[in-house]
Design a protein around this nucleic acid. Structure first.
Length: 585
RNA sequence: GCGCCCGUAGCUCAGCUGGAUAGAGCAGCGGACUUCUAAUCCGCAGGCCACAGGUUCGAAUCCUGUCGGGCGUACCA
């Protein structure tokens, strides 16, 4: 109900006591329900069962704050013009809806709602007091999610490509956490097989070259200069006299340990910690054998999924699972190809009973990932897999340096490391933020020179500066003895009736909804959009409106609420991104 | 050849799962500091949303095709 004056105050107090706090998400739900039942009450059976009167934020201020396009959607079904449909719907809402101050019909048939000043002000107040978290729907509800990311094999330092994935994975994890999920971060790595052999051999070659001067690195081996350092460390620890023939395992394990250390320290630059590092060797041979047995016992079109060819290789008949090619899973030398342990690893994850599993992979893993998913669906059931496994594939980063694209390969040793990148850009916060301004499936040109050049005019600093400015205002307010109100009253909303205040409150009100959508879609880049909007909104407000003013303390106090709400949203969001929110700059 | 992703301002990218006049940052031009931080704000300029069809009240968004770029198409991970 729409109320005003004293009545509203009384009602308001009661509502706080007996109802849940009104949040932007609930408001939109209720609005959709009211509209939906209105539509049904007028047209009844003519409306399809799955019809929903969807509402969304209005782009333009003159179109209210929230708008509904139901009338246009219904025009085709009802064979009537949208404006008259909208009119009939609006008539049923004539008594008013709580928190909505006015309704209008505009353009081709939009039903536009204006949020009441009191609702906007109270939302800002609650954001300031409780923080963003309290406004996000508890989607996870304490359920457990496993996020697998980076999963780079221990053959060298992390590169620019891994950096994008690390930032993406970590932010998605934080975002899920903010939506009520209990998050575990897991790193899967391959510590057996050909790659590790090559790495060990490459180390051995560098180790021996100290004696005979020339390093003979195997074809396809690792040429990175970091291995030279490892070789001299190995020499310092174990002396001379090791040979590939006798000490193969020593070389491999030593290299692995060194590589893992590098990776851990690279990750720490981004502030990332994993809950578990899962080694492929933990799966060999039992879990993998087990998985093969399970797949063997499946028959499609009267034949087993697994077959052996005349040379003794074992194949998995992926074509029977709707995939384009059959694949070798055990080679003639008895070694597994990478798909098989991947399948076993995912079976292991599923057996650990997570409610949700998120895989984050680079574009080069797409095909493998599809194969793994197909195998899982075959063993565990389609629904069980599609409900619980979400695969996010991100595209590659092309690094541009001196106006040219840099080709990268860990093998050849030609790559830019995550460490170098952060060093070149000048800050891990800037690096993270820049990666997060693009959506995962978009290719990305990362221009190093530009990133460096822009670093003083950077989107991150723009946002951080807004935060620092607010902190400055709060300091000044403290010195002037002006305090933020501890309780909400409708007096506050009547003091915030200027155009800049309203613009800012409207923006603040939309933040929880936008963040929740970003979490639902697991699209962290939307958070940087929200942050940029918040910073712009605040800077604009700041430029036009004086907050601390000892001549009108009540207005100052009301405006402080908005400052605090902004600050809280910015720092909470930066927190999710793992970026610092400084009080001074 | 086939599969997946992407073509939006000079550059790097958004565009809220089909809506109202397509947005931001950087680069360019012009304004605003006696003030809670000018790392800011305000304004101007810049677009056949790759191209061609289709679907409908309505398309940057969905479908088909063409052209261009990336990745994959390994018994490397």
């Amino acid at each position: 109900m729409k109320c005003s004056g004293a009545m509203s105050r009384v009602l308001n107090t009661m509502i706080w006591r007996i109802r849940r706090m009104m949040t932007p998400a609930i408001l939109r739900d209720e609005l959709e329900n009211v509209l939906g039942s209105s539509v049904r009450s007028i047209w009844g059976d003519r409306i399809p069962d799955d019809f929903r009167a969807v509402v969304s934020g209005s782009k333009n201020l003159e179109f209210g704050d929230i708008s509904c396009q139901a009338a246009m959607r219904l025009a085709g079904i009802l064979k009537d013009n949208p404006r008259s449909i909208a009119g009939r719907i609006a008539e049923t809402l004539i008594d008013g809806i709580e928190w909505i101050s006015s309704i209008s019909i505009d353009g081709p048939g939009f039903i536009n709602f204006r949020l009441s000043d009191e609702y906007l002000a109270s939302t800002a107040f609650n954001l300031a007091a409780l923080g963003l978290q309290s406004f996000l729907p508890d989607k996870g509800a304490g359920r457990e999610v496993l996020v697998e990311f980076v999963s780079s094999n221990p053959t060298g330092p992390l590169t620019v490509g891994h950096c994008r994935q690390a930032v993406l994975g970590e932010t998605i994890s934080s975002l899920l956490c903010a939506s009520g999920w209990k998050v575990s971060r897991e790193y899967y790595f391959n510590d057996t097989g050909r790659q590790m052999n090559l790495l060990g051999e490459s180390l051995c070659a560098r180790y021996l070259s100290a004696e005979d001067g020339e390093a003979v690195i195997p074809e396809d081996g690792y040429h990175g200069s970091y291995i030279i350092e490892w070789a001299s460390d190995l020499r310092a620890e174990r002396g001379a006299g090791l040979t590939w023939k006798n000490d193969r395992d020593t070389f491999i394990r030593f290299a692995e340990e060194k590589a893992m250390k590098m990776i851990l320290s690279d990750l720490s630059l981004l502030g990332i910690e994993f809950d578990r590092f899962f080694a492929e060797s933990e799966l060999i041979p039992e879990a993998v054998t087990n998985a093969i047995d399970k797949l063997s016992s499946v028959t499609v079109d009267g034949r087993s999924l697994v077959y052996k060819d005349e040379s003794g290789k074992l194949w998995l008949r992926f074509t029977a699972l709707g995939r384009p090619k059959d694949r070798v899973i055990i080679r003639d030398n008895g070694m597994y190809t990478y798909r098989m342990p991947d399948i076993a690893y995912h079976l292991d994850k599923f057996s650990r009973n997570y409610d949700l599993m998120v895989d984050i992979f680079g574009a080069d893993h797409l095909d493998t990932s599809r194969d793994v998913t197909a195998a899982l669906e075959c063993l565990l059931g389609r629904e069980s897999v599609s409900d619980r496994l979400k695969v996010i594939i991100h595209q590659f980063v092309t690094l541009v340096k001196d106006g040219r694209k840099v080709k990268m390969s860990t093998r050849s040793g030609e790559f830019v490391t995550l460490r170098e990148l952060i060093h070149d850009v000048g800050s891990s916060d800037v690096t993270k933020y820049l990666f997060l301004t693009r959506r995962a499936e978009a290719h990305m040109d990362f221009d190093l020179d530009l990133a460096r050049m822009q670093s003083s005019e950077n989107p991150v600093y723009y946002v951080q500066y807004a935060h620092a400015r607010i902190a400055g205002i709060l300091r000044a307010a403290g010195e002037a003895g002006i305090n933020t109100p501890l309780e909400f009253s409708s007096d506050i909303s009547s003091l915030l009736n200027g155009e800049y205040e309203r613009e800012l409150m409207r923006l603040l009100e939309s933040v929880p909804v936008r963040v929740a959508a970003a979490a639902d879609e697991m699209e962290p880049h939307r958070l940087t959009e929200v942050l940029a909007d918040l910073a712009t909104g605040f800077h604009r407000f700041y430029q036009h409106v004086r907050v601390v003013d000892t001549d009108s303390r009540d207005v100052s106090e009301a405006r402080l609420v908005l400052c605090r709400a902004c600050r809280r949203c910015i720092s909470d969001l930066l927190g999710i991104l793992g970026v610092d929110a400084p009080d001074r700059m």
